[in-house]
């Protein structure tokens, strides 16, 4: 029998630690660590979804936060309008993000490289300004979400239950993306990132595969948005300003592109840095920026690169 790979071990250890984290709140005496960690899990899920197109598919989208915003706004607006059942809210919100991803993807995937980056950014900015213009739903000031989504079996307003829900969903998302990467679909996506023409000459309509990946990634990020609205009980355009899209890219690159666990690692380190450095100074990016530069110089395959995929490698 083969020894489990260091990367698989890392994933197991991470999830066990995260599952034990609520105990921490007992010692600290308040919910603050749990609130921060829940946010980490949610943004990690958004980063995992971005990794599917960026890391595996080689599509650098600078508009991914738009799907986070769409999922969050869908929940916020439905709650405001009196639709509070999660069984209605969640599927509708995911369907909406998937449809928008289909439209954005269908148009932007006709471009390549830097044009793709700019087109995805442009679409995300359009959605951002639509949310700013939603005067009925708070406009620029944002919208308070009065109640969390209602499920008969689960009370989302209980912080610990909500934390575990996010953890389970994140685990499922990572397992799903890791599995997808190994299917024929994933192989076509990964191979085409290196040589698109070659993949077409093998008989694969690359555009359709990429579009499917873009829609899956958008829908998954929409789910993260749903969780974020429930977590903050507040949605505002700042959820999806373009800096957030850049943050997600940093998380993916920091953790290691093209590995399903990497973005979780990246999100944890990113948020930890934000938490600790912003206590030191308001201009915490001034410290974080150079750190990233140094990091990218010396660990090009990201944090996950420190944990080989196969036992015996490196």
């Amino acid at each position: 029998m083969r020894r489990p790979s260091p990367r698989l071990l890392l994933a197991c250890v991470l999830f066990i630690l995260l599952a034990l984290a609520p105990i921490l709140t007992i010692f600290v005496g308040n919910d603050y660590p749990l609130i921060v960690l829940t946010r980490v899990l949610i943004l990690a899920m958004a980063a995992v979804s971005l990794d599917l197109i960026l890391g595996y598919g080689g599509m650098v989208s600078l508009g991914h936060a738009a799907f986070l915003g769409l999922g969050a706004y869908a929940v916020g607006i439905m709650t405001t309008e009196g639709v509070t059942s999660g069984l209605v809210q969640w599927p509708l919100a995911i369907l909406l993000t998937a449809l928008v991803a289909l439209v954005i993807g269908a148009l932007s995937l006709r471009t390549r490289g830097v044009y793709f980056i700019l087109v995805t950014l442009a679409f995300a900015q359009m959605i951002y300004f639509v949310s700013v213009g939603l005067d009925a739903y708070g406009g620029e000031d944002g919208l308070v979400v009065p109640t969390r989504s209602r499920f008969s079996v689960l009370d989302l307003s209980d912080r610990t239950s909500f934390y575990f829900l996010c953890l389970v969903l994140l685990f499922a998302a990572i397992a799903f993306v890791a599995h997808l990467a190994r299917t024929r679909f994933g192989l076509v996506l990964r191979g085409a990132a290196m040589n698109e023409r070659r993949m077409r000459a093998l008989g694969f309509p690359v555009y359709r595969y990429r579009l499917a990946a873009f829609v899956i990634a958008g829908a998954l990020c929409g789910l993260a948005g749903i969780l974020l609205a429930n977590h903050s009980e507040f949605v505002s355009p700042s959820i999806m300003n373009w800096g957030r899209s850049a943050d997600l890219i940093i998380m993916v690159v920091l953790g290691g592109i093209g590995s399903a666990v990497g973005p979780l690692l990246g999100a944890m380190v990113f948020m930890l840095a934000e938490e600790t450095l912003s206590h030191l100074t308001t201009y915490w990016q001034l410290i974080f920026g150079p750190l990233i530069l140094i990091f990218v110089r010396f660990a090009r395959s990201g944090l996950i690169g420190l944990f080989p995929e196969r036992s015996g490698d490196g």
Partner: peptide, 9 residues
């Protein structure tokens, strides 16, 4: 495809 293993290729 340099980023895929022999098996995956």
């Amino acid at each position: 495809f340099p980023n895929l293993s022999v098996r995956e290729n």
